[in-house]
Amino acid sequence: MSLSGLGDSPAAQPPALFPAPEPGDPAPGTSASGTSRRRGGSTQPGPAQTEDAGRQLVFFGAEAAEPAVADLAGLLAGPGEVVRMGGTARLSVQVDAAWRVHVLVAELASRGLSASWEPTEGERHAVRTSYTRVLKPLAAAWLHGQAKRPPATFHLTGRRLRLWLAAAGTPEPPGGFLLRLGPDDAECWEPIGVALAAAGLAGTLVSPGEGGPAYRITGRRRLGRLAELVGGAPPAAPADTWPTPP
């Protein structure tokens, strides 16, 4: 898998911290071209209201619908940012590992969005799309002035969770998983926690002073549900970085 790199230069190479997967090695539930095989309907669910309702969201996991631009709300639930320019918008996110770059560039490409990346301070990488009208509705839903806020109808699906996890999900031994949040998005944390709970993934908010901000997901049942919703690990993900069914 090649990345467009800095300024889409032909000479740019992907980050060397982790090798790119072989082009012929598709992710679970996808074809060799990177497009998902449809399994079930593509209708998006509304927020579940109970633990049992949350369990039903397994049927709307990451492999149950075709990729859609609306899925990128999962990146905004985490540390992703969106900015507007005229009638266009651009989405960006900083990640802490090169394998995440490979996964996110592929996920964006599957939604018809070209992306570039560049190294930033602290051995991190910034992944960003080009400015495009395609992202204008997402920006309109999430931006209040310059501030990021989840819309009142925000809910989490398997594909949104998969993108969030790919960008900012971290295993926490011996038995937990952290879904990291935007450090400057304090007003988003509570409604995002509500969306997690509605998906059957009620988590504990970890404050910045305790190693967050993030939501900590614990418990065999919740971790199993997370694994079912996000689907199999991407080929680029190192071992033990992705939740697995119990």
Rank of each mutant, 00 (worst) to 15 (best):
R162G: 06
A239R: 12
G122W: 01
P246C: 11
W189V: 06
A139M: 05
L223D: 13
L138Q: 01
M85T: 03
G203N: 08
V134G: 01
G74Y: 00
G175D: 15
A168K: 01
R37A: 11
A141F: 01
P173D: 14
A140P: 04
A202G: 11
G158D: 08
A167D: 03
P47W: 07
V82L: 08
S92I: 05
P45H: 01
Q94Y: 10
A16P: 06
S207Y: 13
E51L: 09
R225A: 09
F177Y: 15
F177P: 02
G24K: 13
L226F: 11
P213M: 12
A109P: 09
A202M: 08
S110N: 09
R216Y: 10
D8G: 12
T43R: 12
E107G: 00
G209Y: 10
T88R: 06
H102G: 03
P14G: 05
V69G: 00
A89G: 05
T35S: 13
T50F: 04
R159A: 15
A186I: 08
A98K: 06
M1K: 09
A199E: 06
T88H: 11
P173A: 08
G80S: 04
V58K: 06
K148Q: 13
L178V: 11
L226I: 04
F59Y: 15
T241Q: 15
A20V: 11
V127I: 15
G86E: 00
L91H: 05
A64M: 00
G41T: 06
G29P: 04
W164I: 03
S130A: 15
H144F: 10
A197E: 09
R180N: 06
A202F: 08
A106Y: 00
R149K: 12
V95G: 03
T170R: 15
A53M: 14
G41A: 05
G200E: 06
L178F: 11
T129E: 08
G41R: 13
A89H: 04
S207H: 14
P28V: 07
A167F: 07
S207P: 01
S2F: 08
G40C: 08
G211Y: 15
A20M: 09
S114C: 13
G5E: 10
G209L: 13
L229I: 09
A53W: 08
F154C: 01
A98R: 08
P14D: 03
T35D: 10
H125I: 10
V93K: 01
T204G: 03
E190V: 10
L108E: 03
E118Y: 06
L113T: 04
A126L: 15
S36Q: 12
P246S: 07
R162M: 05
A141K: 04
P79V: 01
W242F: 11
V134W: 00
R128P: 02
M85P: 00
S114M: 06
L229M: 07
P10K: 02
D184C: 03
K148W: 11
Q13H: 14
L6T: 12
E123Y: 12
G203E: 00
T204S: 12
Q49G: 14
P10N: 07
T132S: 13
E63C: 01
S116H: 12
G224C: 06
P137K: 06
V105L: 04
A106I: 11
G41M: 04
R225N: 09
T30A: 09
P15D: 14
D184Y: 08
E190S: 15
L76C: 02
P191Q: 06
P235D: 05
E66Y: 10
S31N: 13
D184G: 10
A237L: 02
G212W: 15
A68Y: 08
R225W: 11
L161K: 10
T241L: 15
